[in-house]
Simulated scan of single mutants.
Amino acid sequence: MDKRRAVVIGSGIGGLTAALALHRSGWQVTVLERAGSLEPVGAGIGLAPNAQRALDVVGLGDEIRSLAAWQGEGGMRAPSGRWLARTDASAAAERFGGPLVLVHRSLLIDRIAARLPAAALRTG
């Protein structure tokens, strides 16, 4: 029987994670990216507990948590500076089943892409 094949369009976080999940399930995966290369673009992103569980499924959860910055207290302010809402990390972790971790988008992309075979990613 031939190996199952999949084509994933786009090498963003979702596309690469889907490709990695398929690869780990025995599929031959090709990721097509319009850009000429995977450049380190973006900013920091917050990974909620459900996103971290998805990374656990593809074998990256612990690695990303070990590299991430942990969020402390935070909230939203009005333009005047008055607090509209406040929270702290322990209350959020208790409510949602784990902490919010902060990591740079390019670091996450690099770590996911590194788990794919080199021939799987086609740019340009």
Rank of each mutant, 00 (worst) to 15 (best):
M1F: 09
M1Y: 08
M1C: 13
D2E: 15
D2S: 15
D2L: 11
K3L: 06
K3D: 02
R5A: 14
V7F: 04
V7M: 03
V7C: 05
G12M: 11
G12E: 07
G15A: 10
L16N: 09
L16E: 05
A19Y: 09
A19D: 01
L20V: 03
A21C: 02
A21Y: 00
L22M: 10
L22F: 02
H23K: 02
H23Q: 00
H23Y: 07
R24A: 07
R24M: 07
R24C: 05
R24T: 01
S25Y: 04
S25N: 08
G26Y: 08
G26D: 12
G26A: 08
W27Y: 12
W27M: 04
Q28A: 13
Q28S: 12
V29P: 05
V29R: 02
V31P: 04
V31L: 03
V31D: 01
E33T: 03
E33N: 08
E33S: 01
G36P: 13
G36L: 01
L38A: 15
L38M: 11
L38K: 12
L38I: 14
L38Y: 06
E39Q: 14
P40N: 14
P40F: 15
V41K: 12
V41Q: 08
G44K: 13
G46N: 15
L47G: 12
L47S: 10
A48T: 14
A48W: 11
P49E: 06
N50I: 04
N50T: 13
Q52G: 00
Q52A: 07
R53W: 00
A54S: 06
L55E: 01
L55T: 00
L55W: 08
L55P: 01
L55F: 00
D56P: 04
D56C: 03
G59D: 03
G59R: 02
G59H: 01
L60H: 06
G61C: 11
G61P: 07
D62Q: 15
E63R: 08
E63N: 09
R65K: 14
S66I: 08
L67Y: 05
W70N: 14
Q71G: 03
G72Y: 11
G74C: 01
G74F: 04
G74T: 03
G75R: 08
M76D: 13
M76Q: 12
M76Y: 13
M76S: 13
A78H: 14
S80N: 15
G81H: 06
A85P: 01
R86L: 10
R86T: 07
R86P: 04
T87V: 06
T87A: 14
T87F: 15
T87L: 04
T87N: 07
D88A: 10
E94A: 15
R95Q: 15
G97K: 10
G98F: 07
G98W: 06
G98L: 10
G98N: 05
L100C: 12
V101T: 12
L102D: 06
V103K: 02
V103M: 05
V103L: 14
H104Q: 04
R105Q: 10
R105N: 10
D110S: 11
R111D: 07
R115H: 11
L116C: 09
L116A: 05
P117M: 06
A118K: 08
A119C: 11
A120V: 09
L121A: 06
L121H: 05
R122H: 03
R122S: 01
R122D: 00
R122F: 00
T123H: 03
T123W: 00
T123M: 02
G124E: 10
G124F: 04
